[in-house]
Computed example of a mutant assay.
Amino acid sequence: MTELNRALAGAAEKGIISAHQVRDLEVYLADRGFRFGPAASDAAADRADAALDARAAEDSEQPRFIRGFHDILITIGIVVVLIGLWGLTGPLATLPVILVLAEILVRRQRLALPSVVLTLALVHWVAMTSMWLVDDHEDTWHPLTFTLVYVATFPIPLALFYWRYRVPLALAGLVLSIALTCVVAVLLAFERVLGIDVANPDYVLLLPLTLLVGALAVFAIAMRYDVSDPQRLTTRSDIAFWLHLAAAPALLYSLMGLVFLVNGGATWWDGQASFNQAASAIVIVAVFMLVGLVIDRRAFVTSGLLSLGGAIWTVLSKTNASLDSYVFIALAVVGVTVLFIGIFWQRLRRMVIDLLPETITARLHAAP
C-alpha cells in the first residue's frame, strides 16, 4: 500500500471521509495517473463504514455531564449530604450548602455531573420553599393565580445560578420556567380579561393550544442554540440538549391533547380511545421520530414511545386479540422500533438528510 493509500485509510478511520468515498477518490486519482496498492475489499469497506457509523452514533449527541467515576463519587457525596441536611434542617441550611458546593465543585473545579445535580438541588429547593410560602393561599386564590405565583418563583434563582456558574442545565431551566410562566399568564389573561373559562368544555382546546405555543417557543430557542454550534463543540450544544429534552414531550403531549380532547378526553387507559385517534397518534410519533433524525436529537424519538405503545394497544384492542396477546405485541413493536432506529440511526439520518436542501442541512449537525 502506498503512502497515499495509508493517508486515505487514516482519514477514513478518523471519520473525515467514509470508506466508500476513499474508493471513489482512488478511482478518480487512478484515472489521472496515480498508482495505488490493492483496493480494500467490499467486505472491508462495509466493516469500515459500520465502525464509522458506530463512532458517529456515539459522538453525535454527548452532553458533557459526566467525565469519569470521580464525578460519580463526588455526586454520590452531594446527594447524601443534601438529603441528610434536608431531613435535619429543612430548607434553612440546605441552600447555603448548595451554593458553597457550587463554588468549589462548579466554579473552581468545573465538575460536570455535580453541576447538574446541584442545579437540580436548587430547583428542588425553590420548588419546596415556594410551595411552603404559597400553600396558605391555595384555598383563597384562583387556581391559575396560585399556579402563576408558584411558577414565577423559578426564573430569578435559575438566572442568578446560571450567571454565577454557567451551568447549561440552569439556562435551560430558566428558559423552560419563563415559558411555563408565560403559558399560565396567558391562560389567566383569557379568564380575567376575556372572560373565557379554560375549564369550560366549549374552550377545552385552549389549554393544549397554549401549551403548544409555549413548547414551540422552547423548541425554537433550542434550535437557535443547535444551529449556532453545528459541530457540537461548545456548551451551546449542551443547552440545546436540555431544551430539546423538555421541548420534545411538551410538544408531543400538547398535540396529543388536541387529538384526545376532541373526543371528550378519552385516553389509552380508559379504553375509550378510537381507532382514528390511535392512527393520529402513530402519525404524530412518526413525525417526531423524523424530526429527531433531521436535527440529530434522540429526545424526539424517546418522548413518543409511550404514546406509540398506547396507540398499538388501542389498534389491537379493536380486534379479537386477547389481552395477553396485544400487550406483548405492543411491547415487542415498541422494542423493535427502538432497536431499529438506534442501530441504524446514522444510515437513516443520511437518507433523510440527503432529501433536504443544502441550505437547511448546512446549518444542522453533519451526517457522516
Rank of each mutant, 00 (worst) to 15 (best):
R67F: 03
G173T: 00
Q231T: 09
L176R: 04
S60Q: 09
A362C: 08
L339G: 12
A159L: 15
A54G: 11
R166D: 06
I104E: 11
S18D: 13
Y253Q: 10
T359D: 11
E103D: 15
L82W: 06
T145W: 11
A152E: 02
Y253I: 12
I341T: 09
T361P: 01
R32E: 03
L245A: 15
T361G: 07
A222D: 00
S115F: 01
F161K: 00
P368Q: 06
H142P: 13
Q346D: 12
R350P: 02
L118Y: 02
T235L: 13
V294I: 14
T89M: 09
L252W: 02
L148R: 00
G37M: 07
A56K: 08
A121F: 05
A215C: 06
L206T: 10
F36M: 05
L209E: 13
P201V: 02
V301K: 06
V333G: 14
T359K: 10
G68N: 02
I16A: 12
T94E: 09
D324P: 07
G90Q: 12
T337C: 11
A48Q: 12
G265Y: 12
W163I: 05
F146I: 00
S254K: 02
S280N: 10
A321Y: 08
L261C: 06
I312R: 00
F300P: 02
V183H: 00
V175A: 06
L305K: 06
A217L: 12
V334R: 02
R236V: 01
A266V: 12
L29F: 03
V106F: 14
V97R: 01
D296Q: 09
R297T: 05
I17S: 04
P143S: 07
R297C: 10
D53H: 09
G195Q: 03
Q21I: 06
I282C: 07
A185G: 10
D46F: 04
L73D: 07
D46A: 14
R192N: 09
P155K: 04
L99I: 08
E13C: 08
F260L: 15
Q277A: 10
L4P: 01
R32G: 08
V294G: 00
I72Q: 00
